[in-house]
Amino acid sequence: MTRAKSDPDGNLAQVRHVVLVLSGKGGVGKSTITTELALALSHAGKKVGILDVDLCGPSIPRMLSVGRSDVHQCDSGWVPVYTDAQKRLAIMSIGFLLEDPDEAVVWRGPKKTALIGQFVSDVAWGELDVLLIDTPPGTSDEHLAVLENLKKHRVDGAVLVTTPQAVSTGDVRREITFCKKTGVHILGIIENMSGFVCPHCSECSNIFSKGGGEELAKLTGSVFLGSVPLDPLLSSSIEEGKDFTQAFPDSATFSAISSISKTLLNSLRTP
């Protein structure tokens, strides 16, 4: 992209805040939290973008029900896919670039690094209040590639997602070390899948233990942003690509998500 070269900020010039969503562990809900935060922020009147850099397991397109869309080119690069007519929520994911959804992206690091480089510099996001970057688990190629390509642009920080068990918080501790080593500010920790309230008898079962996220925040001196319960309504909304924040505004899960998004927004305002 010639334009990106002449202007160091290129396509990110009009992006106000960049937030990474990280977790050392897989399947803890990084993409779910990214999706719900994006929806909550966009309903709060913000212009939001999601960049999905999970190349081997992209979940964002399905969660926002955008399925197979074509990515178009414009003068300034790739046009992201919008979920709504008002263009409040823009997405870019490798899911949009695959011919067959079952096709495996069997790539080693250097190839992944190259595509992420393009994702960061060549997507024409336009004006955004917040760009959320959803990542795969681990501390490897994808994470280093994102940070390297964002060197010139200010990254506000990272939100870390964990589930309550020790097996998960153990991996997230490593991710915290990654953030410290690479100089990424930690905006806070979110505990997901925290407690399940039986819809039949209202008994709360801590399927994946409890309190791990808060403990981890204390241990590492990070902000605890809140916990999101294990809610079948949330998992089925995510499955079907429905907007949970619109469908169940009275649920405890919704109030947890909206309070997290408010805290996050405030922490972005006062850096």
């Binding site: 039986c198 008994e203 079948p232 998992s235 499955e239 079907e240």
Partner: peptide, 17 residues
């Protein structure tokens, strides 16, 4: 599926849609 230890009802927490 998850069987509630109290009421023994099964919930599909991660639904097989």
């Amino acid at each position: 599926g998850f069987v509630c230890p109290k009421c023994k009802n099964t919930s599909q927490i991660f639904p097989p849609t």
